[in-house]
Design a protein around this nucleic acid. Structure first.
Lengths: 339, 339
DNA sequence: CTGAAAGCGCTTACAG
DNA sequence: CTGAAAGCGCTTACAG
């Protein structure tokens, strides 16, 4: 008859009070195994989905997840947009509201800045973006406050400290480099990311490993600091050219810096990809719009952020999930050609 | 003492019942002018913001706005992401949930597809994206069902039919062309958008007007159908070159097609921007990452979508808002140089 | 471990 | 036009 099932329907079918149903749903209070089973099966047969609004209204919690993200020096990036979009999708689905907390990554007071909303008890859980998710001090401070925490795109060092979701960055580096080697490239430039972004660094750990495995000596690559944005990649490419070393392929820490490298190479009248192969990481939305369209490794940051919210919810229910890792996927386009 | 003010605080201060407060807040029931004033002033002095969850729970409406958007043939575009993001921001703020309804624009049954969720009464208002917002039949069908409606980025023809928000596209075309004329360009290529997207067509109406005003004859421009995506711009540029006509500047219907045009020009070994100026519309997030970085006219679609939700809310409250128009803003980068 | 009951902050018939 | 009251679907003290 009625449209949506309520908690009372479930209670009736399971032969318990609605309070008991609520308790097994929230999983934060002891309930006998027998009743738990009956409730769970009733939930399943009725396809019951709790009403988010009622839940929010009745609960005395903020029902908010806090996304801690670095402020960008330049415009808000595609990365942030997709990350926030995924997190918002996850939050909406679970009935949380999302509060985005932008903090300057280079600030001396970044830790106390991050803690402000947590100390004010404005959230029930936090999503920590890179490079904050790479900082053990921040993680420990959050854990000391006993707020559910999920790391996003952190480096390997902190993955043992808390739950989270990130790329298998080393595998991404291996995959991309293996592809370049198969194309016949033997001389490389690496445009490294920021030293605080451990995840980006791991990509080059993987790349170097693949190089070594292929029997290439370490003098087959020149490394420059390229950063993670367009100007960084632009200058990195210019610096590589200035070294006199002539790579046939340039690996950039991400797609934005690869875009900058492309622009710099064009400024030097290089013909792409014939004179220089340029590749990145992320498969950002614009990667296919560059000229030449960029060969890269996909990092589905929106999906990862949505998943991070799920994991956060699991922690709130008392679970102790591990760090999850997503497998890299090579995206072949035109910016890499045979050497 | 207590943190947040409630409707009862307002009622107390205004000397009325909470029901009356609710009525003036929702503005859908007659309330005497005197009480209305008192309530409004109490709301203001207490800085009262109604609790969204309670509102949703108590109301018997779906509290959902429906975003009707065309499915993209290719990947989901930046345009959709920003539009949906802006709409979601607006909805979150007003306590609506957003349901996105993707409909094939080229389907014969697109009207009945669009009407499905409306007929099922799953939403309290609809946001209609282009090119659906250009179709009088769709608009009339929606209006016949008496559902609050806001058009997004429609062409001028339908702007008198319903509330909405869009660019002043003609002004955008005038602004961009005026700039190119000032750079000394005298021979142009126009890569037109899809004929269903009236808004994109208007940009060229403005461009032609500027040309005429500058005293240039109509044979100073060659027009091709370029579409609104990368492949469309790519082919358009190739076709322009095939005509033998040698423009010094190419105006594309949007940034994605401009990116495609850049790639095609590169394929013909043209040096950009020296051999050919290429410009677009939108100032998409990737525009600054192209090589050369794209000169374009900004269309803040996320802001526009958020505003559209506000307008929708105004209609639900009984208002009769007009179509709103946002002014174009020229973004000068490197893809346009002096002729 | 469990139920009966109060309450979260609104909206909306209902009865003037 | 307006108020008293019921009710939206949950959660959580409270009292076993």
């Amino acid at each position: 008859m009625s449209g949506r099932k309520t908690i009372d329907d479930v209670a009736l079918l399971a032969g318990v009070s609605n309070a008991t149903v609520s308790r097994v749903l929230n999983n934060n209070t002891p309930v006998s195994a027998a009743k738990r089973e009956r409730v769970l099966s009733a939930v399943k047969t009725l396809r019951f989905r709790p009403n988010t609004q009622a839940r929010l209204l009745a609960g005395r919690r903020p029902n908010t997840v806090l996304l801690v993200h670095p402020v960008a020096h330049h415009d808000l990036t595609w990365y942030f947009h997709m990350l926030e979009g995924g997190a918002l999708r996850g939050c909406t689905q679970l009935g949380f509201s999302l509060q985005t907390h932008m903090v300057r990554a280079d600030s001396a007071r970044r830790l106390s800045k991050i803690l402000e909303p947590i100390n004010r008890r404005e959230c029930d859980g936090v999503l920590l973006s890179a490079p904050f998710s790479d900082d053990p001090d921040i993680i420990r401070a959050l854990q000391a406050r006993e707020v559910p925490l999920v790391l996003l795109a952190s480096g390997v060092e902190t993955r043992a400290m808390a739950a989270g979701v990130g790329m298998d960055d080393e595998a991404a580096g291996v995959e991309l480099m293996t592809y370049l080697l198969r194309l016949g490239h033997k001389r490389f430039a690496f445009s490294l990311g920021l030293s605080e972004h451990k995840s980006a660094l791991s990509r080059f750990v993987g790349a170097r490993w693949a190089l070594e495995k292929a029997g290439l000596a370490s003098d087959c690559v020149v490394e420059v600091q390229g950063g993670l944005d367009f100007p960084g990649g632009f200058e990195a490419c210019q610096r590589v050219i200035a070294t006199g070393f002539r790579p046939t392929a340039m690996v950039c820490a991400n797609d934005e810096s690869a875009a900058g490298a492309i622009h710099a190479a064009r400024g030097r009248k290089l013909s792409l990809p014939d004179d220089l192969t340029i590749v990145g990481f992320d498969d950002a939305p614009f990667a296919q719009l560059l000229s030449p369209p960029l060969t890269t490794v996909a990092q589905p940051i929106d999906v990862m952020a949505a998943r991070a919210v799920d994991i956060l919810a699991e922690i709130m229910r008392g679970g102790v999930p591990d760090y999850e890792t997503v497998k890299p996927r090579l995206v072949v386009r035109e910016s890499a050609s045979a050497a």
